[in-house]
């Protein structure tokens, strides 16, 4: 007997094959190609291009930017989600929409906005320059652009969950004598920890991989303001394919480790 919601066997097979085929073609194949290109001449050239001082600087910068941007977005995202899910206040809908803004705006525009505001001809640029602070074409600009682009990840994963869980557990904690911090740490946080972790990991993956916004504000100074994605592009444009794919492979590896960690943690939760 076939259940009423079940399709004919041949149709099921076709659908499954189509899904797997698309995944292989568009997701797995490019990944394999990256590693295959990198290792075309064996380990030697890969090791050499990864130990290049400019490559190492790019790796260091990428990790540093992620190390600043992710914690900032962790705190900001949790605060925004907590406010939206647990309280009513004027402007709540607007805030909800604003959180999505970085997803809907092209990253290049996000970068340009920072150049407009902080650049040499920008609103705040000259004022900052007089005080010896350089934002654009330096670390602060890259960090700001990354924070902007990756802001939605934590908030977006938390808001639906927290709205679904409602406020009654927090209210119960309040009637039992808990203040705001105890309520958050002992009741809210344990209820959202797996979603939070998954949001943080996604945020991290994107922070390390962001190209567009960072490209606009970075200035592409080799060994100084080049993150890994930018470094890959420069190498590729210089026809250094092995080196480009080696760095790209490392970046992909970081992303894969992040996704793997997410999957493992979600299973544990």
């Amino acid at each position: 007997m076939r259940r009423p919601t079940e399709e004919a066997p041949w149709l099921r097979w076709v659908l499954c094959l189509a899904a797997v085929g698309v995944a292989l073609l568009f997701l797995v194949l490019p990944l394999v190609a990256v590693f295959a290109e990198a290792f075309r001449r064996g380990w030697g050239p890969v090791a050499k291009s990864l130990s290049d001082p400019d490559a190492l600087a790019a790796v260091r910068l990428t990790l540093l930017v992620a190390a600043i941007a992710v914690p900032v977005n962790l705190v900001g995202g949790v605060a925004a989600a907590w406010a939206i899910a647990k309280f009513d206040f004027p402007g709540k809908r607007l805030l909800t929409v604003l959180i999505e803004l970085p997803f809907s705006v092209s990253p290049v525009i996000s970068g340009l906005v920072y150049v407009l505001v902080f650049g040499a001809q920008g609103w705040l640029g000259p004022w900052l320059e007089e005080r010896g602070v350089q934002v654009v074409f330096a670390l602060p600009g890259i960090v700001l652009a990354t924070i902007f682009v990756t802001f939605p990840f934590v908030a977006r994963t938390l808001i639906p969950l927290m709205q679904d869980q409602g406020r009654t557990e927090e209210e119960a904690a309040a009637t039992l004598g808990a203040g705001g911090w105890a309520m958050f740490r002992r009741v809210t946080l344990p209820n959202i920890r797996w979603a939070l972790l998954s949001g943080v990991l996604l945020c991290n993956a994107r922070a390390m991989g962001e190209f567009g916004a960072v490209s606009v504000v970075s200035g592409h100074v080799r060994g100084e303001t080049n993150t890994m994605p930018l470094h890959v592009e420069i190498l590729y444009n210089e026809y250094q394919f092995v080196a480009a794919f080696a760095v790209a492979g490392l970046l992909a590896l970081l992303a894969l480790v992040t996704l793997g960690a997410k999957a493992v943690l979600e299973r544990a939760g």
Partner: peptide
């Protein structure tokens, strides 16, 4: 939190 009143919620709201 300072009222010291016991409250039992409709759907219990257990942690």
């Amino acid at each position: 939190r300072e009222r010291g009143v016991g409250f039992v919620f409709q759907n219990y709201a257990l942690f």
